[in-house]
Design a protein around this nucleic acid. Sequence first.
RNA 1: GGGCGCGUAGCUCAGCGGGAGAGCAUCGGUCUUACAAACCGAGGGUCGCAGGUUCGAAACCUGCCGCGCCCA
Length: 877
Amino acid sequence: MSETQPQSQRPELPPSWNPAEVEGELYQRWVDRDYFTADPSSDKPPFSIVLPPPNVNGSLHMGHALNHSVMDALSRRRRMQGYEVLWLPGMDHAGIATQNAVERDLAGQGLSRHDLGRERFVERVWEWKAEVGGRILDQMRRVGDSVDWSRERFTMDEGLSLAVQTMFKKLFDDGLIYRAERIINWCPRCQTALSDIEVDHSDDEGELVSIRYGEGANSIVVATTRAETMLGDTAVAVHPEDERYRHLVGTEVELPLTGRRIPIVADDHVDPAFGTGAVKVTPAHDPNDFEIGQRHGLPSLTVLDGRGVLTVPGPFEGLDRFEARPAVVAALREQGRIVAEKRPYLHSVGHCSRCDTVIEPRLSLQWWVKVAPLAKAAGDAVRDGRTKIHPPELAKRFFAWVDDMHDWTISRQLWWGHRIPVWYGPDGEVVCVGPDEQPPTGDGWHQDEDVLDTWFSSGLWPFSTLGWPERTTELERFYPTTVLSTGYDILFFWVARMMMFGLYAMDEVQPFDNVYLHGLIRDANGKKMSKSRGNGINPLDWMDSYGTDATRFTLLRGANPGSDMALAEEWAAGSRNFVTKLWNATKFALGNGASIDIPLPARENLTDTDRWILDLLDRTVSEVDGHFEGYQFAKLCDALYHFIWDEYCDWYLELAKVQIAEGGERAEATRAVLGHVLDVVLRLLHPIAPFVTETLWTTLTGGESLVVAEWPKPSGAEPDLVAAKRIESLQKLVTEIRRFRSDQGLRPGQKVAGRVRGACCADLVDHVASVRALTRLEEPGDDYQVTMTLEVGLPTGAVKVELDTSGAVDLVAERKRLTKDLAVAEKELAQCDGKLDNPKFTDKAPAEVVAKIKARREAAVVEIERITARIDSLPTA
RNA sequence: GGGCGCGUAGCUCAGCGGGAGAGCAUCGGUCUUACAAACCGAGGGUCGCAGGUUCGAAACCUGCCGCGCCCA
């Protein structure tokens, strides 16, 4: 397997960690060695991960950086565990966004796509893609993504396009694709239909105008936020139970400004409490009105064109909808028909998710996917556990969406995308052409002008990228994929569509076994990062300033499943500090001869300290594994951070100095432990922070690469609880002495003569040297004079520490310190007594809880006695 | 309007029936030979409010207040 260089030939560690200088080189080395290339013929268990394909024109934002950190961490761990990992990279063609970008480009030269014509325009988009598209792929390299570049795909590739056509034909033949004239979301700027989820709703300030239709007793007042559409009204609707209007139902009123007479109809869906309880009905320009129109056989009158310009002959013809609105209101006001006006009036308005233009509901003929059966299958796959959603709470959201999903408009009035494979004949024939069929030719035959929604093709991604519709070995081996990771806001975009299509195309086999949903990235104030707010942080800036490892660690450390995370620069700086800490610790260990070449001595030949850190390491390995399995990235990072910084660096390294100073076998054993712990911990951290761990680990071990190193397992040793207790005592004793020193104003580095008494009674004989070293106690000389004695209660017993503080002791500080300790102990005693004096507690609480409280009480009593005695013995100032 | 989620230290969040925690920030002290991007020490919370269940509630139930998200 991997070759290991002898210690003498291993590279020296550079004096400091400069991520920017080495990350690119390290990454390229991994790629060159084909570590990330999947081998479908291997006999390893498969692990495959779906990259939600980013837009060809997109660039990396924090959400991507988080998601890619997640996917990479998962992939790297599995690779180390011996799985055959396939993480396949690629992009989608982003129909609307890309066409917009190229059209903007053309506009700069005074051209429109129509000047070029369809064919030339599409060529131009391909050129654009080659020149400026795909920036995000380079950025993925910066993140360190361990993707298989040899399998990169693009939704407009030949193979994936074939998959699209195959899927369309299959759905069409099964009656799941149909063509219908309905109200759709139309973007007057992008000039295309949009599906419901491509529309964002916001509460905007508008106006609510009440208009009187008709005259005298027969008149009726309607309230509207869209006065300009009244020109297309074909009815007024009221609720059937509404007493106010019952007499008018069935009559007609004259529609102002037009002279047309329109009926008053009764419809259940009218809300009698809204406005006047009467609504104007414009079937061609409002989805609800369209439905009312359908129910009552009303005509649909289109009065706005695709640009949102009024087309009704007369004074308003040619006015844009937003100019027409005040103009129509003014004309109505002149006739005395405006009964009330409310401005500003806050109401929900749909905007194009691509360009933010206000959506125009528009009656038009489009292709649709009948989603009910597909959506039901998607819901069932989650319901019966074939696909698990992490965290499970979010499954509710998925069901809510999938169980009440409207049909999906899939045609887009664009040129960039997969053209709808339907041909229309001279006599009204409609022929859907499959991938192996020839389209009909001859006079009068022509192909549908529209293309498919980009999500139609990205919905196929989990299997089209593996070669579907062919049954390739890749497909056999890597489908269903193991996990899809994405933000919960994208649940309905990728997840729902991939689920529907995957189950349908792959004989009811789900596209992924797991869906991990992370939270949204917010700024330090909890506001969502967005371009319009200008509060976005560019992950590449962080990678430049703090390194990729620190950036990844920051993101993953904040990733609690399903909940959002707030980010600020300090977070990244903190992670950078952590990486630096690890660097320095390794440097120290190596400088002291830490090595993996020294065999780890048998446990009985190790010290308490060694066994303690090895046991903690075992626990950390188990914790990290558990958290990986549960997608608990924040906890995983915390476990590693805590172990490395608080246990290994703050305690073990300091204690190791003492052991190394002993020399001989003790020093040699310590070097083995130092090296072993580092080796394991670097492996554990590698999926999170691949670059720095690779650098440190190859230096430490001379191994080929951590990418292909083995994932650690717990040693299986029984934890030494006695050693753990002694170390706990040691730590407490050290802290107490330091606290005293600090309270007495002694400098941390200042040596103080002193002795530890009673170590044997506290079972700490072997640890006195360490305590002395960590608290800077020096051997008493001839002039030794005990000026202060500390009594410290420890888990293993009590010890006395004598100190020569060479001078007056600050008695006020010492009294304060003891008084504080006394208060803590007294509070503890009171708490315990409170419980134990309650017979209900002693009767009903479990015996072990009662025993525990009793033990705590005893400890508190002893503590109080000791402290009280100390206070009493202090000379009064 | 319907649904979901969240209110715990100054900030960001863990904890989700038996001793209030972490990171960052704050305060005091230190260049103690891996690390001042560090070390040592310290302070800081009626766990949103009000009831209830329980021997025991930050946690479970109900109501209220505040915030956020999704859908209409």
